[in-house]
């Protein structure tokens, strides 16, 4: 912008304060990429096999389902909402797919699974956005309810899926696993929606100031329902990805605890629990950090318990950084 004809006096003092603050912001912003780089270096020193293309591709396959859920989940959290039922919905979708391959064929089963995931999301969305119920309570309810439903539909683990479906889980296209491609597509979708579409700022606006969002004419309810539906849809996608890898759909254990992994990844990615801001790319880094941690610790033969403790510690450190940042501003 060149001369705007505005000549009101400005003082220098606020600018200096701003520069100092930007420096600090930069340091906080760099913390996550730095952590990933240092961690990668550490694992490389301890277990050189870590730093191979094949291992990184393996990590991408390991995190692909988690990433696929985390991206829409991140948008939901930015809008100030939450979905704790993603793990159970993953199980339900896996079970539905497993049960319907035979009667409906692969295409039919995939479509039905995606529809079931979307409908679960819609139901969550209607309770939260239309009826104004608490997101945590509603999805805590559906978490239990849907797990029960999945187990009722398939009391015994389902396994042995059609070979044409299982290729999704192991085949590569253009050098990368299909699962990795799906994950990259979801990331691109998430980044694109937030950066290029008008809905991006509207989603965040909901999390910043819901009352203002309503008063300036945003479709607060529709956006909320849409976000839950999208989350449900991508959970269904993640369910298909997961069962294609493990070739079974155990209703009792599939997706257990996924809601917590997703939440951890998204919070690591810098989205505050109260929503209102965040970046999809940083969430990608958050997911990647979790994936790298578990991969690297396994390569180092660190027992699972220790790996769990490390993950928890990392989350708390990240939360500490966030508090530090908000204190400053």
């Amino acid at each position: 912008m060149t001369d705007t004809g505005l000549t009101r006096g400005t003082t220098g003092a606020p600018l200096e304060a701003k520069a100092e603050k930007d420096w600090f912001e930069l340091a906080v912003a760099a913390a996550l990429p730095m952590a990933i780089a240092l961690l990668a270096l550490f694992f490389y020193i301890k277990a050189p096999v870590f730093m191979t293309v094949n291992n990184w591709i393996a990590i991408s396959v390991q995190v692909s389902a988690l990433m696929t859920i985390s991206i829409p989940f991140a948008l939901l959290l930015m809008a100030g909402k939450i979905d704790l039922s993603v793990g159970s919905t993953l199980a339900l979708c896996g079970v539905v797919a497993g049960l319907s391959f035979e009667p409906l064929g692969i295409a039919g089963a995939v479509l039905l699974t995606l529809a079931v995931g979307t409908v679960v999301g819609l139901i969550n969305g209607v309770f939260v956005s239309s009826l104004g119920m608490s997101p945590i309570i509603v999805t805590l309810g559906t978490l239990t309810l849907i797990r029960g439903l999945a187990q009722w539909l398939a009391p015994n683990p389902i396994f042995g899926f059609p070979e044409e479906f299982l290729v999704i889980g192991y085949e590569r296209v253009l050098g990368l696993p299909i699962l990795t491609w799906i994950m990259l597509t979801v990331i691109a979708l998430g980044v694109g929606v937030m950066a290029l579409l008008p809905i991006g700022p509207q989603i965040v606006a909901l999390g910043v100031n819901k009352r203002a969002a309503f008063l300036v004419g945003l479709r607060v309810k529709a956006i909320g329902i849409g976000l839950y539906a999208a989350t449900g849809f991508f959970v269904a996608v993640a369910a298909l990805m997961s069962i294609s890898r493990i070739n079974s759909a155990p209703a009792g254990t599939l997706g257990i605890g996924v809601e917590l992994s997703v939440l951890t990844a998204v919070l690591l990615g810098g989205i505050p629990f109260t929503g209102g801001k965040g970046s999809v790319l940083r969430v990608v880094l958050g997911v990647w950090l979790l994936g790298m941690l578990s991969n690297g610790l396994i390569l180092m033969n660190v027992p699972t318990e220790l790996s769990l403790m490390t993950t928890g510690l990392v989350l708390i450190v990240a939360a500490g950084l966030d508090v530090l940042r908000s204190r400053r501003s």
Binding site: L197, P198, I199, P201, Q202, V204, A205, V208, N209, R211, A212, A213, L215, V216, G217, L218, G276, K277
Partner: peptide, 27 residues
């Protein structure tokens, strides 16, 4: 409480009501 989006940039604050509808582009 009721109209400012505190963390939004000035331009986003200005245009949030018009995102995705006339006179701003729909898509």
């Amino acid at each position: 409480e009721q109209s400012l989006f505190s963390s939004f940039s000035a331009v986003e604050n200005l245009l949030v009501p018009h995102m995705g509808r006339s006179p701003m582009p729909r898509m």
